[in-house]
Design a protein around this nucleic acid. Structure first.
Lengths: 349, 349
DNA sequence: TTGTACGCGTTATCAG
DNA sequence: CTGATAACGCGTACAA
């Protein structure tokens, strides 16, 4: 516990070597007041050029850096921190989102505080709480599951909040989505147009926001073509490769297996492909449509169409919406919630 | 379900003052001093149980959260922030590293401040500077290029620093590496054992730390088998798919093309595969060894061995080394730099 | 143009 | 066991 360094206890501000330099150290070295140093650091307005020079020298010599934390406790000051809560950075989709947010906000010097919720509402809440405690300027969240108390509190606390990829009922905040419904609809329609009537579905069908939306597009396309959905072909699986793999194997074991499979997300697609390889399904034996593009998708030995979209742009948009709230005056900051839906693009075989 | 309870029926202070509650607000509401509240929040040692109760109630009612920034300006207090600087989170390898660090440090409540340097030393330095200004408790950095002044300053400022994936000459700090040399050596040896004597190399051969190490393993295996390296087969390319693709096409156009290709990292591998598909090389037309495993590697239509390793464990180890420095007494914190090299595992065809 | 006084939210110290 | 006091590093308001 008491592992204090060898340090004199009450030295006002006389000589403190090993510690990080403060604004006072710079002031003393430059022969000015702390206030003048502060002014220089904030643009040097109304400071004599000669003193600016002296201050800058002292800053360089001491390697002084403003203490952002001390700075942020003053009223009206921003921390320059954006909290980003994604479900799992190991999923390339969310890595793209994180990167996009950083692209959007780093221009104004803001940094990212990142946390993975792992689809766990409890962990998400802990992260939100923690981020609020660090007084982040704003939050970009891919909400896990349904509306959490944590997010409500954040919104109530007046912290600008942008939801990415998923919307939450009962939480009126800026939201950026992929147009899941239209994307799934188009992909499914292509299969139907080719004459497929028994199309397997692998992925979430409810619960998960994007899953239910994508299933909705899948269903709508069937409805429109008057093709009935065979429940045996719908494998409602969690978004992980293993579940998708098992679901796909189940489909292949059916008396009347599907002639095509719609995979609802990039995790499912990995599982679908593993199952097909494992079962030795020949290239002409299965037609595929996958939501979410992935590297090497053109290496897949089956005829594959991809519902592509720009996850990075999703993150960028979320970041921009946040910066809008922050830069705008107090009026803008409390404007009505906006909803942006980014388009998908069908990349056919 | 349809929770419209976002209003202020339960939080009267939210109506009067939209500002976040402070420790004083809690103190007043609980009828105690700010000091007692602070004590309760830090473990409740030496506080009468009845008061603990009252304080906790007030905290809950007000939705109070300690201001971590204000807290951190007190001497001897940790911020609970670990700065992580990777080159590019879009590369799954670094996403794994980031995730691993989070796994290792989140147990003690620390959060991640993340920045992508994009292999740009200037940007890396800006991030380091910024993170130091935020008084992070420690840094995990995948250094881009050679030793930057920023990192030296961080080390000098006494901020625990762990390098991940790459070492830096002249910077004696804790470092975690993949055993690149041994991994590349083993992979190459497998090819040589199969009788391949003309093996193409795609990836960095110098400059990039991991690249030069992997090339070293590649070279060493050749030396040992007395197989000479044909310079025409060595394509020193930056670590991106496009460069690797062009390099591979160049190899294929040779009068005497290689019978096998060693790809030095996951980015290169993508380019190699694209080139092979594009050039219509048949499955039996090329033998491959790829450093870094990737999803769907078993879907590759060419005989492929993979030099696998655990990037997540790399991140975890880096995070743990950092926590060691932080938790250890002042003696431990200044102990000699440690070097850990994680093993690779050859996954053969 | 420059400096002084004060307060931001929290906690160590020390007196009671 | 509890609370008053004084910092921590910085920036606003005001004074000079």
């Amino acid at each position: 516990m008491g592992s204090m360094d060898a340090d004199d206890s009450s030295t006002p501000s006389a000589v403190r070597r090993s510690a990080v330099p403060t604004i006072m150290d710079v002031a003393e070295r430059a022969g000015v007041s702390a206030m003048t140093v502060s002014r220089v650091l904030n643009g040097g307005k109304n400071v004599r050029p000669a003193k600016i020079e002296r201050v800058m020298e002292a800053v360089a010599e001491l390697g002084y850096r403003r203490n952002e934390n001390a700075r942020s406790i003053r009223p009206g000051q921003r921390v320059g921190l954006i909290g980003v809560i994604i479900t799992n950075v190991l999923n390339p989709y969310y890595a793209e989102v994180q990167f996009g947010v950083e692209e959007a906000v780093s221009g104004s010097g803001a940094r990212l505080l990142v946390g993975n919720s792992g689809e766990d509402a409890r962990r998400e809440r802990a992260l939100v709480d923690d981020f609020i405690g660090r007084h982040v300027d704003g939050l970009v969240v891919v909400p896990s599951g349904s509306a959490t108390a944590g997010l409500h509190k954040a919104a109530a606390a007046g912290i600008p909040l942008v939801l990415a990829s998923r919307r939450l009922d009962g939480l009126q905040v800026d939201t950026v989505l992929i147009d899941d419904v239209a994307g799934a609809y188009e992909g499914t329609r292509e299969l139907l147009a080719e004459g497929h009537t028994r199309i397997g579905y692998i992925g979430a069908t409810f619960g998960l926001f994007t899953g239910s939306r994508r299933f909705e597009g899948f269903r709508r396309a069937h409805d429109e073509e008057d093709v009935s959905l065979d429940p045996a072909l719908i494998r409602s699986t969690p978004s992980d490769p293993e579940a998708a793999r098992r679901g796909t194997l189940g489909l292949l074991r059916l008396d009347e297996p599907p002639t095509a499979i719609f995979s609802a997300n990039n995790r499912s697609t990995v599982g679908v492909l593993r199952a097909l390889m494992e079962a030795g399904v020949p290239p002409e034996g299965m037609r595929l449509v996958a939501f979410d593009d992935f590297e090497l998708s053109n290496m897949v030995p089956y005829p594959l169409s991809v519902v592509d979209h720009d996850a990075r742009e999703l993150g960028r948009t979320a970041g921009r919406m946040l910066m809008d709230r922050l830069s705008g005056g107090a009026e803008d900051a409390h404007g009505p919630a906006r909803l942006v839906e980014l388009p998908t693009r069908l990349i056919s075989v």
